[in-house]
Computed example of a mutant assay.
Amino acid sequence: MSDRRDDVMRVLSANHLKDYGVKGPSLAESFARRQASCLVVGLRNSDKSGVLLQLLDTQEGVNQLITGMESAALLLGAEKKILFIPEYAIHVKERIETFVSAAGIEVRIGLIDVREHEDSVICHLVTMLEIAECLEGTYEESIYVSVNGGSLKRVSPDTSVGDLIGRKEGKGVLIGNRIYDNHALEMNLEEIELDNGMVQILGENDCMIRLVEKDLLENRKRSCGKCVFCREGLLQLHAMYKDTAEGKGKNHYPELIREIGLAMKHGCLCSLGQNGAQPALGVLEHFSEEYMAHNKRKKCPAGVCFLKSVIYIDPVLCTGCMECLDRCPAGCIEGRPGYIHMIDSTECTGCRACIELCESKAVMETEGKLPKLPERLVKCGKFKKR
């Protein structure tokens, strides 16, 4: 057993293999200094695309995963091996579980809880396949990349972003969890932290503010909520970007976004929180003019925001008659008799039925900035505009 361990360590040292996406000591050095009873393998918690799971589409990929995990466990002295598959890819678990379970690998669904596994060694899924390649003598230093959700391909680390995407026209590019302007086209993949293998070209019709707002909302839904910086940070960042997209941004938001983003990077335990603010920070760094256009001038350069008229209920004129609630086909109006009614603009279809029937003319439509509205049900006549 010790001879086999020495052979594996020697091969990994010769190939200078590192854990996927990590700039630090080689894997052999890390394993030589660390023993653990459990090996945990999966994607980064911040990986929402899952494109790297394409590596398990073939039986060869599954076999390499098993070989890599068995070899890593041997080096660590780990008796337990756990493979985590994201919730959005449960079909992958169903397809490979029979094979990996036969090798003594437990498959779990969800995020990797770093608290639960603080005494374990956590490695990336890609690293396990690369270990197998080292042992097979086929390993070549490369990076897996998917452009715009396409099939994975392996490219040299010194490949420039521009060459990778064919110098296609666009105003920026999303690389991993980071947003860049077109200056990134001159950078090579080794300079950029490509933590999920995903490169997406951003065109003139892509609104950076809306893109980040949706990304933050998705991270909020995926967060386990155990880290205060992650839970509260994502909540506040999402609220600020949502406000900005709706023309309600405040002057102090950029400074606060930077402060929260830095706190999340250093205060969260897993990559979901550590990288969760990166798109929000990237917009301020590389697309500050687009951000300020939303925040100051209430204009969207991409033509995405502020075009759709918004229907709302004037809190001063509303009499709480309940007529609009009964008439709304989308059921997006909330209220009680005698209380100021509220419209959920995300559910409103814009049919204008409520405008036509409101005798007090309280239901209004605007393409500009919304006035101060109640955030909860308030009795008619009691709402104060500040």
Rank of each mutant, 00 (worst) to 15 (best):
I201E: 07
V147Y: 03
D344I: 08
A102G: 04
I122H: 02
R352H: 02
G273R: 04
L194N: 03
F31T: 11
G338E: 15
G267R: 04
I257Y: 10
E259W: 15
H16G: 08
D181M: 10
K250A: 13
V304I: 15
S101G: 13
N45H: 08
I90L: 09
A280G: 04
A132T: 11
C123R: 10
R5P: 02
E169K: 15
V378R: 04
D119G: 10
G350K: 05
E285F: 11
V155N: 02
A277M: 06
D206W: 08
C207P: 05
L272D: 01
H183P: 05
H341R: 08
R10D: 13
R297C: 06
V199K: 00
H266K: 11
C358V: 08
M128S: 02
P329K: 01
Q35F: 13
E191R: 07
R154Q: 08
N148D: 15
L52H: 02
C227R: 06
G172W: 10
E323I: 11
E213Y: 09
S101E: 14
H266A: 11
L217T: 09
K214S: 10
T159H: 02
H294N: 09
H341M: 10
G247A: 07
I175Q: 00
G267D: 02
E323S: 12
P86W: 14
E232Q: 07
A73D: 07
E141F: 03
E186A: 11
G176D: 00
Y312L: 06
K80W: 12
Q59F: 06
T127G: 03
C318K: 02
G110Q: 05
S156M: 08
E106F: 05
I122Q: 06
T349D: 03
P374I: 10
Q236S: 06
M240A: 01
H341E: 14
A353W: 12
R154W: 00
P371M: 06
D163N: 12
A184N: 01
E70N: 09
E285I: 13
K296I: 15
M240Y: 09
Q59M: 12
A184G: 02
F306P: 06
R115A: 05
L43C: 00
P374M: 09
G303F: 05
K153P: 07
E204S: 12
S360D: 14
G368C: 01
G381P: 01
V316K: 05
G172V: 08
Y88K: 12
H16D: 14
V51I: 04
L317I: 06
S146N: 05
I143A: 00
E94G: 04
G149N: 12
L74F: 03
G249T: 09
K80Q: 14
H124C: 00
V145D: 04
E204D: 14
N63S: 13
L357E: 03
C134A: 08
H294G: 03
L217P: 01
K384Y: 13
L194G: 01
I340M: 09
H91C: 11
L17S: 03
I96R: 06
E29V: 14
I143V: 13
T319Y: 05
A102L: 06
G225L: 11
L189R: 00
F306N: 01
L27C: 04
K171L: 08
S360W: 14
R5C: 05
Y139M: 11
